[in-house]
């Protein structure tokens, strides 16, 4: 048996890298973010409010999508980046305006891509990202 050098992909205590794509200047300060949003209506489209949680078997991503119908939500997975795009039709007097919201999430390698599921309920989109069985932390018993 040969003992190989520990490769960078195999690090202990490594936190999943959902990375800078998710970083928002006001992340963690929703009230402040809301205040800013009230005064500076978003002109760009990357303003989807997002949450990310983890349990032993899954990652759970949640997106706030009030007023968005199920068929107006698109979830794409490309090169380990999950992108949620949603279109909301807002009435502005006589006219109907359409606004597009989008947010991307870089998935860590532990996510099993073909097991991802999504659900839209009460204006919240929940995406469940299962972890690969073979990559979960294991306990090795001592003989």
């Amino acid at each position: 048996m040969k003992i190989a050098r520990c490769t960078p992909a195999f690090q202990f205590g490594r936190t999943p890298d959902f990375g800078p794509r998710l970083r928002h200047p006001l992340a963690g300060f929703p009230a402040m973010a809301q205040l800013f949003e009230d005064f500076l209506p978003a002109t760009n489209s990357s303003n989807l409010v997002t949450d990310l949680h983890e349990d032993t078997d899954h990652f759970h991503a949640r997106f706030e999508l009030p007023g968005v119908k199920k068929d107006a939500v698109k979830i794409e997975l490309h090169e380990r980046v999950l992108t949620v795009t949603a279109e909301r039709v807002v009435k502005a007097g006589e006219k109907e305006l359409s606004r597009t919201f989008t947010r991307s999430l870089a998935l860590p390698e532990i996510v099993q891509e073909d097991g991802i599921t999504a659900k839209l309920e009460d204006g919240i989109l929940s995406v469940t990202l299962p972890k690969q069985e073979s990559r979960k932390p294991k306990v090795i018993s001592v003989n």
Binding site: T15, P16, F18, L22, H24, A27, G28, P30, A33, V49, T50, D51, L52, H53, E54, D55, F59, H60, R62, E64, I124
Partner: peptide
């Protein structure tokens, strides 16, 4: 659920 990133 352990929070990793919170905006909601």
């Amino acid at each position: 659920w352990k929070p990793l990133h919170c905006e909601l």
